[in-house]
Amino acid sequence: MDEELLDALYHIDQNRHLFTERELAALRYAEIVTTSARDVDEELWDELQSHFDDGEIVELTTVIGMFNFFNRFADALKLDEA
């Protein structure tokens, strides 16, 4: 992945032009699932369905969930404090 694009993730609102609408929908979904999964509303769901089929949404959710798990696991065990 391009370094500029990785840096842009820290300030998505200022760098929207670097992402496709599909990518922005996935990023919004990832943020909401990570911070408060119960807040996935019909508007976001409709947006996701306009860019992804059901299988892709399941895959996206799985990847988001797995990375959340890995981060929490590492944090709890203080794995990054070597």
Rank of each mutant, 00 (worst) to 15 (best):
E31W: 15
M66T: 12
N15I: 00
F70A: 06
R38G: 08
S50T: 14
V58W: 06
T35L: 15
I64L: 03
D7Y: 08
L24A: 13
E31D: 14
E3N: 09
F67T: 10
E42H: 15
E3K: 09
F69Q: 15
E56G: 03
D46I: 12
T61A: 08
L9P: 01
Y29M: 03
T34F: 01
Q14G: 08
D7M: 12
R16E: 06
L18G: 09
A76S: 14
R72D: 08
A8I: 00
L27R: 15
L24R: 08
L44H: 03
N68W: 02
A82V: 15
E59F: 06
H17C: 08
Y10M: 15
Y29F: 11
K78M: 10
L48N: 10
D80Y: 03
T62V: 10
L18K: 02
D39S: 14
L77Q: 13
G55A: 12
E4S: 14
E23L: 01
F67C: 09
F70Y: 14
D54W: 04
L5P: 07
I12R: 05
N68L: 07
E31Y: 11
L27W: 09
F19V: 02
V33R: 07
G55L: 07
R72T: 00
D80C: 10
H51G: 10
D2R: 06
E31S: 15
A76P: 02
I12S: 00
L60R: 09
E47A: 13
T35G: 07
A74D: 06
N68Q: 04
T61N: 01
E47L: 08
E81Y: 08
F70C: 08
K78F: 14
F52S: 07
W45K: 13
V40M: 08
Y29C: 00
A82D: 12
V58F: 07
L44A: 07
G65L: 07
H17I: 10
A26Y: 06
A74V: 03
F70R: 11
L79D: 09
V40Q: 00
S50N: 15
L48R: 07
S36P: 01
D39W: 02
F67Y: 12
I32Q: 01
D75R: 06
E3P: 13
K78N: 14
V33F: 05
H17Q: 09
W45E: 11
L77G: 08
I12E: 01
E31F: 05
D2Y: 02
F73L: 12
L27I: 04
H11R: 11
D41S: 02
L6H: 05
R38V: 03
F52E: 08
H11E: 11
V58L: 04
Y10A: 15
Y10D: 12
F19T: 01
G55Y: 07
D41W: 02
R16L: 14
A25S: 10
D7P: 04
E81H: 04
F19K: 03
D75Y: 05
R16C: 09
N68S: 06
Y10N: 14
